[in-house]
């Protein structure tokens, strides 16, 4: 009888009396019962909050920037080099803030990228298990230090230290802030680059050893190039973090927006400007109040572009292995 093909489902469905259970048994909606559905929708609604957050950020920045750009034309915003919203003669040239941000970011990258990558290589390729067990929590603690504490450190430790080497260095300067921002992002570079190095299959290094390579040759000429994409992603994410860093530059870099490449000068970054305005009691509706949204919009777009780019690289290289 098993040679005969099974009866068509319609016939079988009508055979309600056959078998030890009634036919509607299987149709009781349990998996998708109202309760289960309600839970699913409730959880899904929570997941939507993150999307709404992004939309909220974009909406707030755009809506509040519109009146700003109605009184300050884009030609001035991007054409002017002075940023003086608090003076009677107001100028809104974003370059003054952008250059401050750029200066601090470059200095921090000079500190963090080599040191972070070196740490990643050491931890991933050289450190023994127990050394790693000490170093990694150490770096995690470094990453857990609040930025305001780094700001204190920059102002009361690094700047006086630098003043002994750099004569005439003022209390507020881009150099000290940049170095400390760099220190702050070292753990980020180190941990993301280490992930990238770990993702490289160790068969590659073994192949290099089989060809007679020494350890450093295998690491520097095989593993690091193989992890290049992930390391670049870590650099971009860390630089984006440096661009968005606020408290260190607010405390240590000064409040003088100017277009300069001299690291010993006091400057102002976009983030520090936002804090400076919101710290004072700026009334809603004034052009200063609106200006923080315009600056915030620029800041958001720059960091978002870098994050999207870095995350795309990361996903690509994750697929590779």
């Amino acid at each position: 009888m098993s040679t005969t093909p099974s009866p068509p489902p319609t016939t079988a469905d009508n055979e309600t009396t056959r078998g030890p259970r009634p036919a509607d048994d299987l149709r009781q909606q349990v998996y998708d019962s109202p309760k289960e559905k309600a839970i699913e929708y409730a959880l899904g609604a929570c997941a939507l909050v993150s999307v709404l957050t992004t939309l909220g950020i974009a909406a707030v920045l755009l809506i509040e920037s519109i009146p700003f750009f109605q009184s300050v034309p884009l030609s001035e915003f991007f054409g002017e080099t002075r940023w003086t919203p608090q003076f009677t003669e107001k100028h809104f040239g974003i370059w003054a803030l952008l250059s401050g941000t750029l200066l601090v970011t470059v200095i921090s990258a000079v500190v963090a990228l080599p040191v972070g990558l070196a740490s990643a290589i050491f931890i991933s390729e050289y450190a023994s298990t127990w050394v790693r067990k000490i170093l990694k929590p150490g770096l995690e603690l470094l990453a857990g230090v609040p930025t305001v504490v780094y700001g204190y450190f920059a102002l009361s430790f690094v700047t006086p230290l630098l003043q002994t080497f750099v004569p005439g260095l003022g209390v507020y300067n881009a150099l000290s802030a940049g170095i400390v921002v760099g220190i702050m992002i070292i753990p980020m570079v180190a941990s993301l680059s280490e992930d990238a190095l770990q993702a490289v299959p160790n068969t590659l290094a073994r192949a290099a050893y089989a060809l007679g390579a020494t350890k450093y040759e295998a690491v520097v000429r095989v593993n690091v190039p193989a992890a290049f994409g992930g390391i670049m992603a870590s650099f971009i994410l860390a630089v984006s973090r440096a661009i968005g860093e606020t408290m260190i530059v607010t405390l240590a870099a000064g409040a003088s927006p100017k277009t300069t490449a001299d690291p010993t000068e006091a400057i102002q970054t976009m983030t520090a400007f936002i804090v400076q305005v919101s710290k004072g009691d700026t009334p809603q509706g004034t052009i200063e109040y609106q200006s923080i949204f315009a600056v915030g919009l620029v800041l958001f777009l720059i960091t978002l572009a870098m994050n999207v780019f870095a995350n795309r690289i990361t996903r690509r290289y994750q697929e590779k292995y």
């Binding site: 079988a12 469905d13 030890p20 259970r21 048994d25 909606q29």
Partner: peptide, 15 residues
């Protein structure tokens, strides 16, 4: 299963 289509539209996987 006992003549009932376990993949029928209205069949519940839990059941």
């Amino acid at each position: 299963v006992d003549g009932q289509d376990i993949y029928a539209e209205d069949t519940d996987p839990v059941m």
